[in-house]
Simulated scan of single mutants.
Amino acid sequence: MVQYKITYFDSRGGAELCRLVLKAAKVDFVDERLTGEEWAKRKEGMPLQALPVLTIDGSQVICQSAAIARYLAKENGLMGANNLEALRIDEVMEMFSEMVQRELIKIYMVKDNEEERNKLVKTFVEGPMKKYLTFLEMRLKENKDGKGFLVGDKLSLGDLAIYDGLSLLTALLVNVDPFEGRSLLKEHQSRVGSVPEIAEWVSTRPKTKF
């Protein structure tokens, strides 16, 4: 049996989607969480000097969180039943990557400056957030009228990406409810969160803000 270790900091951040994939697939893994001091000592030896990394069988060390998540999904039947379903999953993955890089990182970087943060949040909520959430609702509705999962008849990486991405959005925006007036997204979030393996992980994982 393949042995996996995910190394990251003590937060959800860029590693959580990979953790969710393994939990959904019922695959055991080592959840290694580094302190700042530990990271300073090990940084030089990491690919691209960045986290997260996936260690496979104690030897292969792979970086880039989205690449890791896709690999783990493919290995465990969570990347769709065909290339078109995989494309739809990739589309959602890229959407969240765009949202984080273009919008959320700016908000996170000024989290200690309340005035500037509030300005950026207002701009995001009134513009880009509507565009992204409307897109997600459209894609969900295209499969079984939004009453199931993103693609096919079962949970996939796409559903986990939506669940993780909207959880991050909720935590970052604090006083903004991204699900307000969006029952389809709210129901999907509840559906994914009710998957036994996901529910158990969320209830027992280390409690962190992000």
Rank of each mutant, 00 (worst) to 15 (best):
K144L: 13
K122L: 13
L20I: 10
Q60S: 05
M1F: 07
E115T: 09
V21Q: 04
E115L: 10
L120Q: 08
I89Q: 01
K209L: 14
C63R: 09
E116Y: 00
L140F: 00
E187Y: 02
P128H: 04
V53L: 05
E137R: 09
E126R: 04
A50P: 12
P206K: 09
G165W: 04
M93Y: 07
I68Q: 10
F124K: 07
L22G: 03
L166G: 07
E137M: 11
M1C: 06
I162W: 00
Y163D: 02
P178I: 04
I6Y: 04
F179M: 15
L78M: 03
Y108D: 06
E114Q: 07
S156W: 00
P47M: 06
N76Q: 11
M1A: 15
L104S: 10
L51M: 14
G80I: 00
I68G: 12
T208S: 12
K154A: 15
A161F: 04
E94L: 05
V151Y: 05
S65T: 03
K43Y: 00
V125S: 04
L20F: 08
E16D: 15
C18F: 01
S183H: 08
E98R: 05
D57A: 12
L160G: 09
K144D: 05
E197A: 13
T123S: 14
R88P: 02
L172Y: 03
M46T: 07
Y132T: 14
N143P: 10
K5V: 11
L54G: 04
R12L: 15
L168R: 15
I105T: 04
E142K: 12
V21W: 01
T55F: 00
L34H: 01
T7N: 03
M99C: 10
G58C: 05
D10L: 13
L185E: 06
E187R: 03
V53A: 06
R19V: 10
R102M: 13
E75N: 14
V151E: 03
R205D: 12
E98K: 15
Q49D: 12
E126W: 02
L136I: 13
E85K: 08
G45A: 07
L136M: 04
V174I: 05
D145C: 10
R205M: 10
K147G: 12
P52R: 05
Q189N: 14
F29N: 15
Y8L: 09
Q3A: 14
I6K: 06
R117E: 14
V176A: 08
K23A: 13
V92T: 06
F9Y: 10
E94T: 03
G148N: 07
V2G: 03
F135M: 10
M129E: 12
E200A: 14
A199F: 04
S156L: 05
I89K: 00
G165Y: 08
E32L: 06
L173F: 03
E142V: 10
G77W: 01
L157I: 06
R42S: 07
G193M: 03
K5C: 13
L169Q: 01
D164K: 02
I107S: 00
L160V: 09
V125F: 06
A199D: 01
V61L: 07
L84I: 15
A24I: 08
F210G: 10
F179K: 09
L185A: 11
S59R: 15
G127Q: 05
A161Y: 00
L184E: 07
V27C: 05
L51E: 01
K207S: 13
M109G: 02
K141C: 13
L78H: 09
